[in-house]
Design a protein around this nucleic acid. Structure first.
Length: 437
RNA sequence: GCCGCGGUGAGGUAGGGGUUAGCCUUCCGGCCUGUGGAGCCGGAUGCCUGGGUUCGAAUCCCAGCCGCGGCCCCA
């Protein structure tokens, strides 16, 4: 490379070569498979959105980490840091008359101006499931089920879930008349482990020591023994009827997931909080033991659509970190994926260009993928190229074949060769059995 | 945004003030006009960028860029 480092991609953004792309594509395909299995209809929204769409319900922190810029007319735009807001925008506008419930899926690239490190890029892909129009725990459980299917299908059976419900903490705070923006701040502090600050903020906003103590105990309470966690949480929450209902709801959600067949390790955290402030109920993260960042996360957001001016519509969803999963599979699991290519190479020797083209067309119209040798390699060199590239069949056309309107099909593995008339399409197709290698 | 470590052809590496900068893989050409995953021969591409120290810098110093890891935050 010369001194022009500008020839590399921008910091934190990856070029994917064919094999890298193939691996990412596999992850994407699995997600699409699960879209189909559950009835999620894929949509697309722009990579570029108005700044306000994300500024609305994001803290200072997120705002600073967005790629933002002015367009030529002075509009303040951003490269989306996530997609849920865009989908909610869709719900409040173009889909406001759609019959509910509606399930939407997306595969999209997102951007954050972070310092790159393990599992964190400035450009990354997310695959999302969003279910609108239902308040039922069945809807929340469905998101867990879909997440489970994706991970299992990718061979990550050892994944685990961390589940919680922001309604539990919020309803305690609401009981003390703590206003919503202050609640957001307190939950964010809890999520970041700044507990002392959170407790102080609670006291300053009218929460008594009973309330603080309850929150503290809830934060400490986490584990896999569902029955035990729930009975302890239930005790702690006995003075707060509303919070108890949320706890019960969380139990129902987990129960539904387990009955579905989600046999993952599930860590219950009644005092869990998540960074994004738009969550209103059930929340979760999904990860694997060897990676300390989460690979999937989501929850319920019942106020987001109306925040964007739509009619009140409950929603629940998740965003799967495609780039992180790909990175994890490749680095920690040693998963490799070869880019697929045709099994067949068409090589002409002393044949006219028109004949080579005719044969190529004949093959492809039968649905046979074929690479055409276009560099003038002689047969031995072409064979070497084919073997090196994993190509299984050679279709050789020379002057003999041209004069007889045939092609010679050579099987490089069996080392057999047969001359077939171009009119015998079926026979050609049969010989070139494997199409993609 | 902050802290630490690093950067030698396309990939992997050796060297560590004066070397024609070495090796492996890859790539290109030849031996080789229709059936060689071979062999041999030949060839191509490199010290991240910019300053400084020095007679002389890939090597030492500073800054930047990029990568990796950590803080923070997050998928």
């Amino acid at each position: 490379m010369s001194g022009l480092r500008v020839l590399g991609p921008p910091r934190g953004m990856d070029d994917l070569l064919p094999d890298d792309f193939a691996l990412k594509h596999r992850v994407v395909e699995v997600i699409r498979e699960v879209f189909k299995l559950f009835g999620y209809l894929e949509v697309e929204t722009p990579t570029v959105e108005y700044y306000e769409l994300f500024a609305a319900k994001s803290g200072e922190e997120i705002r600073e980490r967005m790629f933002d810029f002015r367009d030529k007319a002075g509009r303040h735009l951003v490269l989306r840091p996530e997609v849920t807001a865009s989908i909610a925008r869709l719900m409040s506008t173009k889909l406001k008359a759609a019959p509910l419930p509606i399930r939407l899926g997306y595969i999209a690239d997102c951007y954050r101006y972070d310092e790159p490190q393990w599992g964190r890029k400035r450009r990354f892909w997310q695959g999302g499931f969003e279910l609108f129009g239902s308040r039922s725990p069945l809807a929340d459980a469905e998101i867990l089920q879909a997440s489970y299917e994706v991970f299992v299908r990718l061979g990550m059976k050892d994944h685990f879930f961390r589940v919680g419900h922001v309604g539990i903490l919020r309803s305690i705070l609401t009981d003390y008349n703590v206003e919503e923006s202050v609640q957001d701040r307190i939950l964010t502090m809890i999520d970041r482990g700044m507990e002392a600050e959170a407790f102080n903020a609670m006291r300053e906003n009218g929460v008594d020591e009973d309330g603080v103590k309850a929150v503290e105990e809830l934060i400490r309470l986490k584990g896999e023994e569902r029955g035990e966690i729930f009975s302890k949480a239930s005790d702690i929450l006995s003075p707060w009827r509303e919070a108890g209902k949320h706890l019960e709801e969380l139990n129902t959600i987990i129960d539904s997931a387990v009955e579905y067949g989600v046999n993952s390790k599930i860590i219950v955290e009644p005092g869990m909080a998540r960074g994004l402030e738009y969550y209103t109920g059930f929340i979760f993260e999904q990860g694997v033991p060897e990676a300390d960042v989460s690979l999937n996360g989501g929850g319920r957001y019942d106020k987001l659509v109306e925040l964007f001016g739509g009619k009140p519509t409950p929603g629940v969803g998740c965003a799967i970190g495609i780039t992180r999963i790909t990175h994890y599979l490749s680095e920690k699991r040693g998963v490799r994926q070869r880019a697929k290519r045709p099994c067949t190479l068409l090589v002409g020797i002393q044949a006219s260009e028109r004949y080579i083209s005719r044969v190529a067309g004949t093959l492809r119209r039968m649905g046979i993928p074929v690479e055409v040798e276009v560099t003038g390699k002689r047969l031995p060199a072409a064979i070497e190229y084919a073997l090196k590239s994993g190509i299984k069949y050679l279709v050789i056309v020379g002057s003999r074949e041209e004069s007889r309107n045939t092609a010679s099909v050579r099987d490089l593995e069996r080392k057999t060769q047969v001359e077939v008339s171009l009119d015998e399409g079926g026979r050609l197709a049969e010989m070139l059995g494997e199409r993609i290698c």
